[in-house]
């Protein structure tokens, strides 16, 4: 590409083209080169769309739950939630009236939980969801396996 640019400048120096033509040619060369960055971006990992929670547990074997449900005690939970749904849910929190938040704060304080819900802004929770795609929880114990990830 530098070679083409040099040729344009050479033609300008020799008087074969005018300065305006040289400028147009160099601009055209720049436009040809510009599509390359999106190509590099397309190779990056696509943004995840779903939050998955997978729990496989053998714990119920022989206990009341296993017998009540007539199974072998193996339980499986497979949940897929669109991240967009989480965002929409979070945005709903902005509708909660301030007096309700104050009352919730008072109840939380009475229960010994010192969290000020009025300080919890929807944009903060949205940021949290934005970064959920980097989250991976993998718990593997003898009787249960829990996986939380984004896909």
């Amino acid at each position: 590409m530098n070679e083409q640019r040099r040729q344009v400048l050479q033609m300008l120096a020799e008087g074969k083209i005018t300065a305006e033509e040289a400028e147009r040619l160099i601009d055209a060369l720049g436009r040809d080169r510009s599509p390359s960055p999106p190509e590099a971006g397309s190779r990056t990992k696509p943004r995840p769309k779903y939050l998955r929670v997978v729990v496989v547990s053998e714990e119920g074997a022989g206990d009341w739950a296993g017998e009540a449900f007539g199974g072998d005690g193996t339980s499986r939970i497979n949940i897929r939630v669109p991240l967009q749904l989480l965002r929409a849910g979070v945005r709903l929190t902005s509708l909660v009236p301030p007096q309700a938040l104050t009352r919730a704060n008072a109840e939380l304080h009475r229960s010994g939980v010192d969290i000020d819900l009025t300080q919890l802004k929807p944009q903060h929770i949205e940021e949290l969801i934005e970064h959920l795609d980097e989250l991976t929880v993998d718990i593997d114990s003898a009787d249960a396996k829990v996986q939380i990830f984004c896909e």
Binding site: K49, Y50, G60, A65, G66, F69, G70, G71, D72, G73, T74, S75, R76, I77, N78, I79, R80, V81, P82, Q84, L85, R87, A88
Partner: peptide, 13 residues
């Protein structure tokens, strides 16, 4: 935002 949501809970049979 609901499309794509899936809940699957299995307990024994």
């Amino acid at each position: 935002a609901l499309p794509g949501t899936r809940f699957e809970i299995e307990q024994g049979r």
